[in-house]
Design a protein around this nucleic acid. Structure first.
Length: 501
RNA sequence: GCUCGUGUAGUGUAGUUCGGUCCAUCAUGACGGACUCUCGAUCCGUCGACCCGGGUUCAAAUCCCGGCACGAGCACCA
C-alpha cells in the first residue's frame, strides 16, 4: 500500500469524502462574526463610568456594540455607571463629553441614554425584594474578616439573620444610621461554590459622599454586579459584549438572574488592550495630572483620549474600521499605533491638501531665467482641490538645510544646479531623476509653529510655511513629512499639530 | 491558594465547532522593484507563524492526554 503512494491515498480519501480532495483555497472571513440568538430583537449597551472622558480603549466598546445594533436594526443603550462617589467620583462634565464622543464615532445618537444614579428607586426596590425573599443579608463583617470566611467556605455570623432583622438593618443603612464600612448587603449564593469570587458577593455598600447629580439623597449605593444586572434586565438587553475580566461578573449575575427567574443575555468577551510605545493611562491618574498642570487638558495631544484624537485629526471611520477589523477575540492584544495610523492615513490622504513646511530653513538664490510665478497643485490626484500660486520674481527660495545638494529639483517648479556656490536654473521641466525637494518662495514665506507630542513632552518647533489660505481644523499633509492639523491660522499666529506620518 | 480565560509571522487577524491540496488567510510592517514632479498615493514581488511533548489517524493548527507561558477574578472600583 505504501508503494502505491499519494495517488492511492488520494483515491481512498476520495472514496471516504470527495470534498476532502477538492477544497477551495483559504480565504479570510472579513468583518465581525454574526451574533447568536437575534430572532427576538437585539439590544446592546455601552456602560462607561463618567469619571472622565473616553479613551481609545473605550471606543472599542462603542464601535463593536453600535456595529451590531445597526446591523441587526436593534437598539443601543448608553448607560452611565455612576454609582461610585468615592473611588471613581463622577465628573459632571464627562456625561456630555461621552455623548459627544459617541456621536462623533458613530455619527448617531444612542437610542437610549440613562444614568444609573437616576435609576436608584428601581435598584432599591430590587434590593428590598432580594432581602425580603431571603436571598440577601446585611453583613457587618470587615472586608478582612469576610475574606477569611470566603476562603474557609464558612458562613459568617450574619449569614442566617432572620429576614425581619435584615429589613430593619437595611432600613437603618438607608436612613444614614450606619457609617461607611459598618455594613454591606450580600447576595446569599453558596459559600461552598468552587469559585471563590461567587461566594456571597457584595451588592450594596454605604456611601455618603455627595453625588454631582443627585446630591446627598442616598446613603447606600449598589455595586456594579448588582446595578448592572438589574439594569440590563430593565432595559431588555439581549447581548452583552465586554472585557473578559468581567467573566466572573457574568457568573455572579447569572446567580441573581436565576433567583429572580430571568434569562441572562448572550455574552461575548474581548481581551485586554494595551498600546505599544505608550504607558498606561488611568482616568484617575490623568485627572490628577491635568489638575496639577502636567497636561493642558483632557484633549492634550499626549493623552489617549478620544477628545485628544479627535482634536489631533483622527478620522472616526478609521477608528471604527480599526476595531471592526480586529473583531472580538479573547486574546490580550498589544496594538501598535502604527496600524491605526496606517488606517487613518488611507482615510485622510485623498482629502488632505498638500503644503510645504520647512523646519530647518536655508535661503538660496537662483539665477538664470527663473519663472515669475509658480503654480502648484494642492493635491496630486485631485485637481478639484485647486492650486497654490506663488510669486517667484525675486528668485529667492527657502529649502531644508539638508537638501542643499548640487543637483536638485524644486518640486513642480525647476531643476537647479550649484555651480561655484551659486544655484542656477537648468530647466523648468523635470529633466532627470535628481532628488525632488519641497520649497517655499521667499516672497510668500510665513512663520509657523509645529507642535509635536514627544513622549511626556510637547515640543514646539518653529518652522516656515508657504502662505496659504488654510482653514482652522483641516488636516493637511506636509510634503515629504506627514500629516498635521491646522490649529491656528491667522497673520498673528499659525500653529500646526503633528498627526502622524 | 482557589476559579476562569488565552496561546497562529514583528504587530493585529482568518481557519479550530464538524480533522483532509493548510507547504496555513488578510492587513500592517520590513526589504526590493514599477510608476508618479512628496519620504504621499497606486501597482508588483520577497520575508515572516500554528507554545512544547506525547497519542489517535491514511491525514492534526483543528481531536485526546500531559506540560509550559501569559493574563484575569476572588474590592465596601467599574
Amino acid at each position: 500500500m505504501i508503494e502505491n503512494g499519494a495517488d492511492y491515498v488520494r483515491r481512498e480519501i476520495e472514496n471516504i469524502d470527495p470534498r476532502a480532495v477538492n477544497r477551495v483555497r483559504q480565504e479570510k472571513n472579513a468583518g465581525l462574526k454574526p451574533l447568536e440568538n437575534t430572532e427576538d430583537g437585539v439590544v446592546l449597551r455601552f456602560a462607561p463610568n463618567p469619571n472622565g472622558p473616553l479613551s481609545l480603549g473605550h471606543s472599542r466598546g462603542i464601535v463593536i456594540n453600535n456595529h451590531y445594533a445597526v446591523r441587526y436594526k436593534g437598539k443601543i443603550v448608553l448607560r452611565f455607571d455612576d454609582t461610585d462617589t468615592v473611588v471613581k467620583p463622577p465628573l459632571i462634565e464627562a456625561y456630555e463629553w461621552i455623548i459627544e464622543d459617541f456621536e462623533w464615532l458613530t455619527g448617531s445618537k444612542p437610542d437610549i441614554t440613562i444614568k444609573a444614579s437616576e435609576r436608584m428607586p428601581i435598584y432599591l426596590e430590587y434590593a428590598d425584594k432580594l432581602l425580603s425573599e431571603g436571598y440577601g443579608y446585611v453583613c457587618e463583617c470587615s472586608s478582612d474578616d469576610f475574606k477569611k470566611h470566603r476562603i474557609s467556605m464558612a458562613p459568617c455570623p450574619h449569614r442566617n439573620r432572620p429576614t425581619q432583622e435584615n429589613m430593619e438593618l437595611w432600613n437603618i443603612m438607608q436612613k444614614g444610621g450606619m457609617k461607611p464600612g459598618d455594613a454591606i448587603i450580600r447576595v446569599k449564593t453558596d459559600m461552598t461554590l468552587p469559585n471563590p469570587a461567587l461566594r456571597d458577593w457584595p451588592a450594596w455598600r454605604i456611601q455618603k459622599n455627595i453625588h454631582p447629580l443627585v446630591g446627598g439623597l442616598y446613603n447606600v449605593w449598589p455595586l456594579l454586579d448588582f446595578q448592572s444586572a438589574i439594569e440590563d434586565h430593565e432595559q431588555g438587553v439581549t447581548h452583552i459584549i465586554r472585557g473578559k475580566d468581567l467573566m466572573d461578573s457574568t457568573r455572579k449575575q447569572i446567580l441573581l438572574y436565576n433567583h429572580f427567574g430571568w434569562t441572562y443575555p448572550e455574552t461575548l468577551y474581548w481581551g485586554r488592550v494595551s498600546v505599544h510605545d505608550q504607558g498606561s493611562f488611568s482616568t484617575s491618574t490623568m485627572r490628577e495630572d491635568i489638575d496639577s498642570g502636567v497636561y493642558n487638558g483632557w484633549d492634550d495631544p499626549r493623552l489617549p483620549t478620544l477628545m485628544s484624537m479627535r482634536k489631533r485629526g483622527y478620522d472616526p471611520e478609521a477608528i471604527t474600521s480599526f476595531w471592526t477589523e480586529m473583531g472580538i477575540t479573547q486574546k490580550d492584544v498589544a496594538i501598535s499605533l502604527e496600524s491605526l495610523n496606517a488606517v487613518n492615513s488611507a482615510k485622510i490622504d485623498p482629502t488632505s491638501r498638500r503644503i510645504s513646511v520647512i523646519l530647518d530653513p536655508v535661503e538660496i538664490e537662483i539665477t538664470g531665467d527663473v519663472p515669475k510665478k509658480a503654480v502648484l497643485p494642492s493635491h496630486p490626484d485631485d485637481a478639484s482641490l485647486g492650486n497654490r500660486v506663488h510669486s517667484t520674481k525675486m528668485g529667492r527660495f527657502i529649502i531644508e538645510r539638508l537638501d542643499q545638494e548640487d543637483k536638485i529639483r524644486l518640486k513642480d517648479f525647476a531643476d537647479i544646479e550649484n555651480i561655484d556656490d551659486n544655484y542656477h536654473i537648468v530647466s523648468t521641466k523635470k529633466s532627470d531623476d535628481r532628488k525632488i525637494i519641497n520649497w517655499i518662495s521667499a516672497e510668500s514665506v510665513r512663520d509657523c509653529t509645529l507642535v509635536i507630542p514627544d513622549g511626556p513632552d510637547l515640543s514646539r518647533k518653529s518652522c516656515l510655511v508657504e502662505n496659504a489660505e488654510l482653514i482652522v481644523g483641516e488636516v493637511i499633509q506636509m510634503e515629504r513629512s506627514g500629516f498635521a492639523k491646522v490649529m491656528e491660522w491667522s497673520d498673528d499666529s499659525r500653529v500646526l499639530h503633528w498627526l502622524h506620518r
